[in-house]
């Protein structure tokens, strides 16, 4: 990665860090918190599903487990409402990882299409469990210790913690992408049988990737629970969440680093804005569905990949026009050669 790219990342982080300083309206900072949570979740989802090609549609299991961990731990340990509860956020992530191991063990026994369906089925087991078991409070949900921060800056601590989680997600995703482990995940996406033949321990690699992706999503769920102060099974175990993170990643570009961030930034902030402005969820469904179909029709590999492919094509054309001794960039990159964006 060049110095220029690092400076772009620094500018982006600074812009996000300054947002609550410039915009103080609680309505908009709340939108910022939700958007950051989705950016973290989409990045983490992409770290497994985007790299390995195994589309998981049950990620809200981890989100819900993180949320319930935060709620149950803070209630049963009689925690004082306040910033100390943020210490439970990593715990939410760890519990999600622990839950992810047996789920992955069952779900990853099958190949791709069936895997999708099994993750959906497991999601429903958890949602129905949260509704029907006693310790989860059933449909009435759970109330967390009430945090009495002033409404004018209530959102701000959550915003910065969520921003921190996004950074954690990006660092994990980038580190995985550049490691041997990440290459193994990509090899599984491109040809699982050949990867197996070449000595990749596909079972262990897939399971580790799946469990690792649960960590950030569980932490995001824990922040959500604390932020809301009240959780309900149908909102933390939400089928729309499962698909949202997948659609956001596809929208931006599956398997890229910036794609899921961009997808979540555009789609989640638009959803929150439309919901706040028109208080009409149906309008958002139509907007979301139509936007996704348009993007997928005209940019089948997502927005980020679309522009990358175009830039590569331009570079290739330029090097064809001025032949030089240096090897030119291939016009059609092999999947494994896609650069880290």
């Amino acid at each position: 990665m060049s110095k220029l790219k690092y400076s772009w990342w620094a500018v982006a982080v600074a812009a996000f860090a300054l947002f609550p300083v410039v915009v103080t309206n609680p309505t908009y900072t709340a939108i910022g918190v939700y958007t950051l949570l989705f950016m973290a979740c989409a990045t983490s989802w992409n770290m497994f599903s985007g790299y390995s090609g195994y589309i998981a549609l049950g990620s809200s299991v981890f989100y819900g487990v993180g949320a319930y961990t935060m709620a149950l731990a803070s209630i049963h340990w009689h925690m004082a409402p306040g910033a100390a509860m943020f210490w439970l956020v990593p715990l939410g992530g760890l519990v999600a990882v622990v839950i992810a191991v047996p789920i992955g063990w069952i779900a990853l026994r099958v190949r791709r299409h069936t895997f999708v369906v099994i993750t959906i089925a497991i999601f429903f087991i958890f949602q129905l469990g949260a509704i029907n078991f006693g310790f989860t409070g059933g449909t009435a949900g759970l109330s967390l210790p009430f945090i009495q921060w002033d409404a004018s800056y209530y959102n701000v601590p959550f915003y910065y913690v969520a921003l921190g989680i996004v950074l954690v997600a990006v660092v994990i995703s980038a580190a995985v992408r550049r490691s041997r482990f990440g290459l193994q995940l990509l090899a599984i996406r491109d040809d699982e049988d050949r990867a197996l033949g070449l000595g990749v321990k596909v079972g262990a690699v897939k399971l580790s990737g799946f469990a690792l992706s649960a960590f950030v999503i569980g932490m995001a769920g824990a922040i959500y629970a604390m932020f809301q102060g009240q959780i309900y099974p149908q909102f933390v175990f939400d089928p729309t969440f499962d698909v949202s993170v997948a659609l956001m990643s596809f929208f931006g570009g599956l398997g890229t680093l910036t794609g899921p961030l961009l997808g979540a930034l555009v789609l989640e902030s638009a959803q929150q804005y439309l919901t706040v402005t028109y208080s009409n969820g149906s309008l958002y469904l139509i907007f979301f569905g139509a936007l996704f179909l348009i993007v997928i029709t005209f940019m089948p590999r997502g927005v980020v990949n679309f522009f990358l492919d175009r830039r590569r094509a331009t570079l290739a054309a330029a090097s064809m026009a001025n032949p030089s001794p240096t090897p030119s960039a291939p016009s059609t990159p092999t999947p494994a050669a896609r650069s880290l964006v």
């Binding site: 090609g53 589309i55 549609l57 791709r112 299409h113 999708v116 698909v243 997948a246 659609l247 596809f250 149906s282 309008l283 958002y284 469904l285 139509i286 907007f287 979301f288 569905g289 139509a290 996704f292 179909l293 997928i296 089948p300």
Partner: peptide, 17 residues
């Protein structure tokens, strides 16, 4: 196959709305 899941889901959201 993976794309078809997301495309049909988007169609589904559109019809639901």
């Amino acid at each position: 196959t993976g794309m078809s899941i997301l495309v049909t889901y988007a169609v589904s959201l559109l019809i639901e709305g």
